[in-house]
Computed example of a mutant assay.
Amino acid sequence: MDTFSPEQREKILESIRTIPDFPKPGIQFKDITTLLNNPDAFKTLMEHLEERYRDRQIDYVAGIDARGFIFGSVLADRLGIGFVPVRKKGKLPSTTVAEKYALEYGFDEVEIHIDAFGDPNACRETPARVLLVDDLLATGGTASAAARLIDKVGADCVEACFILELGFLNGREKMEVPVYSVIEL
């Protein structure tokens, strides 16, 4: 079930509301809150992701602040593995590592706990295998920074998974890890 059937794809797409001119004129915002409150569509999506990643030897799921927390934590629970949040700067309480990324006007940063995937000073045979999850791949700035962070703390970001991808924004080109998008628009 690595790809959705046309009926499953339509079920997910119909459950996502489009808000015109948000947060600014010309933007067609994809609101996933309507997917979250549709139990049939949400279950279909999560069953698909669970099946896709069940046998991939993933050790952790990392979710990007904030909507990636929702999909990532549910998927981690279904896979029986740990969940790690990738947060906006200043939101994590312990020692962190940060990664900057470019915005239209300036920069922003995401952070992760330095020990998110275990003791960074411990000798490991192989690095922890991490799946990065978020709701939307647009320009790729935040997601590529998050993937670099995972590698920076000694883990291996094996793939980045998105519910939606806005292909016309070419965010996939910024990613240095394989990308899987459930639905590309």
Rank of each mutant, 00 (worst) to 15 (best):
I150A: 10
D65K: 11
E7G: 02
D151S: 09
E10G: 04
Y53N: 04
K152S: 12
C157A: 04
R56W: 05
P127H: 06
F22L: 09
S144I: 14
F83R: 07
I114H: 07
V84G: 04
F71Y: 12
R56I: 10
D65A: 13
G63S: 15
A155I: 07
T95I: 09
I163M: 14
R56T: 12
E99T: 03
T96A: 10
D156R: 06
I12D: 00
K91F: 07
L45N: 00
E104L: 06
E111V: 13
E125M: 11
D119R: 08
N38T: 06
G118I: 10
V84W: 14
E176P: 05
S144R: 07
L132E: 07
I114W: 05
D151A: 12
K100A: 08
G118C: 01
A41H: 07
Q8N: 12
R54M: 07
R67Q: 02
E47V: 14
V179L: 10
I70E: 11
L79C: 02
F168P: 01
L35Y: 07
Y60K: 08
Y53D: 07
L132V: 02
T34F: 11
G82K: 14
Y180S: 11
E111I: 04
F42E: 05
L36W: 05
L49Y: 13
F168D: 03
F29H: 01
S5D: 06
G63E: 05
L185W: 13
P20L: 04
R9Q: 15
E14T: 14
I112A: 00
P178S: 00
M46Y: 09
E165R: 02
F71N: 06
P178E: 01
L137Q: 04
G140W: 03
L36A: 00
P93L: 05
A102F: 01
V130I: 08
N121R: 13
P178V: 00
L75K: 06
L166P: 01
Y105R: 00
E50F: 07
T3Y: 08
G118D: 08
A145N: 01
L35I: 08
F42Y: 12
R87V: 01
D156S: 15
I58S: 00
T139N: 05
M175K: 13
D115N: 13
V177Q: 13
Q57P: 02
I163S: 08
L13H: 04
V74I: 14
Y180I: 09
D135P: 00
V84M: 12
R124D: 03
D151F: 10
D59G: 05
T34N: 07
F83W: 10
A116D: 03
G82L: 08
E125K: 15
D31Y: 01
L132W: 06
T96D: 09
E184L: 06
F42D: 02
L75W: 12
E184S: 15
L35M: 02
D2G: 15
R56Q: 15
L149A: 02
G82E: 03
L35V: 13
I16E: 11
A76I: 09
A145T: 01
Q28V: 09
E165C: 01
T18A: 06
